[in-house]
Simulated scan of single mutants.
Amino acid sequence: MIALNQRLQAVSQYIKGPILADIGSDHAYLPIYAIQNELCQTVIAGEVVRGPFEAAHLNVEKYGLNQSIDVKLGNGLEVIEENNKVDSITICGMGGPLIASIIENGKSKLKNHPRLILQSNIQTYTLRKVLHRLNYHIIDEALIEEKGHIYEIVVAEFGSEDTDVYDLKFGPILLRQKSDLFFKKWNRELEALENIKSNLDSNKHSHRLSEINNEIKMIQEVLK
């Protein structure tokens, strides 16, 4: 049996339905774990970089799962067939803007309205904006700390829901829960913004300063 790191272990809990597509599958650890633990029946493991793609192939063979896991070389959601029956899509270990662009560029593959399970390293705001635009609403969120870095997991399903700028920035569910990790993450963010601000020239960078001041104000408001 394969073991997963804390992040992928958390992501695996949200997989639903018999068919999973794991995009940016790297060494196919998540697909292998999902099949071994009967979280789904078949997986499309997509990888755009040839090295990890070949490593994924070797791992799938090593565990004897060629019948259950289809490792494909391709960019984003292009590894999914047009008339697909995929139930869940996982995209993990990338920045929010990259995940957002993968979903945006591959939106024709979302006609079946799969659940989206997305683990963002940074800038999840961009990702939430695209989900909202594509008529997906967030049903769950989680924060995971691993090796000193705090990661966000966003789980979304098809269907519209009212949202505001605070929901998009902080996460509607994370904002309601306000866990210790939430405070830790946003206090760190606040410190980083204050540091950037102290290095900016008020004449040369007035627009950027205004943006930072607005962001600082929002974070301080939420952390009260």
Rank of each mutant, 00 (worst) to 15 (best):
E215I: 00
V60N: 09
A142G: 10
N5W: 09
S88L: 14
G46Q: 15
S25P: 12
G24W: 07
Y33N: 07
G17A: 08
G51T: 15
A10S: 06
Q41A: 04
Y151N: 03
L223M: 09
I91H: 02
D201M: 08
A3Q: 15
H113W: 12
N84H: 04
Q6D: 09
L168W: 00
S68M: 15
E146W: 04
S210E: 07
L200K: 08
H137L: 13
L190W: 01
G171F: 00
S25Y: 06
K147E: 11
Y63C: 09
E146F: 07
G159D: 06
H205C: 10
N66W: 15
I44E: 04
L175G: 02
N66A: 15
G171M: 02
T124W: 05
A45T: 09
P52Q: 10
K16S: 12
I91L: 06
R50W: 11
Q36I: 11
I2F: 11
Q67H: 13
L77M: 05
E189A: 05
A34D: 06
K109N: 08
E61A: 15
I122T: 12
I19A: 07
Q41N: 04
E38Y: 14
Y125H: 06
P18N: 15
V222Y: 03
N59V: 13
R7H: 10
N187Q: 01
V48I: 12
I173W: 01
N66K: 15
L143K: 01
P52F: 09
Q177P: 02
L131I: 02
Y125L: 03
E54T: 11
I102R: 01
L134C: 06
K85Q: 15
G96D: 04
R176W: 02
N195R: 06
E211K: 05
